[in-house]
Computed example of a mutant assay.
Amino acid sequence: MNSEQELLDGAALTVYRLNGQFLTIGDGLSSPAGISVAWWQVMAAVQDQPQPVAGIARAMGVTRQSVQRIADLLVGKGMCEYRPNPAHKRAKLVAMTEEGEAAIRRIDPQHAAMAHRLAEALGPAEFAATVATLERLAATLDTIIADEDQL
């Protein structure tokens, strides 16, 4: 195995580990509000603006079907609602309800505390640089995947 392969493996294993760590933290933050971390992720995607299921899935890097299942559960629990989509008749928009916003507000103080702890441990500049590097890595992988789909 060459050093580039080792770097790819190291990046992938680190991201998998980070994913597990973020899920553990997310579960700890979201469970007192009565929601799962998966529900929280979908709700966060529509917190500022209603989105179609496919758009949420793209942003999260997961399948449309998994987001649809969660959106249906959130609508059933009254935390989100489906609204008409002026851009597409069949693809309704997922929007947050007052009940969903209240759940997110219950999470916010502990979320802010965790963000502060992480920023304090890394330092604000390194924290920002880390996020920028991860975003660049994700964008680069998107480009590579799209290029391979074109082949």
Rank of each mutant, 00 (worst) to 15 (best):
N19S: 14
R64W: 09
A71L: 01
Q65S: 10
P52N: 03
P52G: 04
N19K: 14
M79K: 14
D48L: 14
N85P: 00
R17G: 11
G61Y: 05
L29W: 02
Y16W: 13
V131R: 14
R83T: 01
Q65I: 06
T130N: 08
R90K: 15
I107W: 01
K89N: 09
P86A: 05
T14P: 00
I104D: 10
P109K: 05
P50S: 02
V94A: 02
V62T: 07
A119V: 05
A129K: 07
A125V: 14
A87R: 14
A112C: 03
L13M: 12
P86F: 03
V53C: 01
L29N: 09
I56Y: 08
A103Y: 05
G55A: 10
Q47F: 12
E120V: 04
A119W: 05
V46M: 02
A59M: 12
V53G: 02
D108Q: 11
E99R: 15
Q110Y: 08
V42P: 04
A54E: 15
I104F: 09
G123K: 08
T130H: 05
A44V: 09
A121I: 09
P52S: 01
E101T: 12
A54W: 08
C80P: 08
L18W: 12
G76Q: 00
A71H: 02
F22Q: 13
L74T: 00
E81P: 05
S31E: 15
G55H: 07
Y16V: 15
A121F: 09
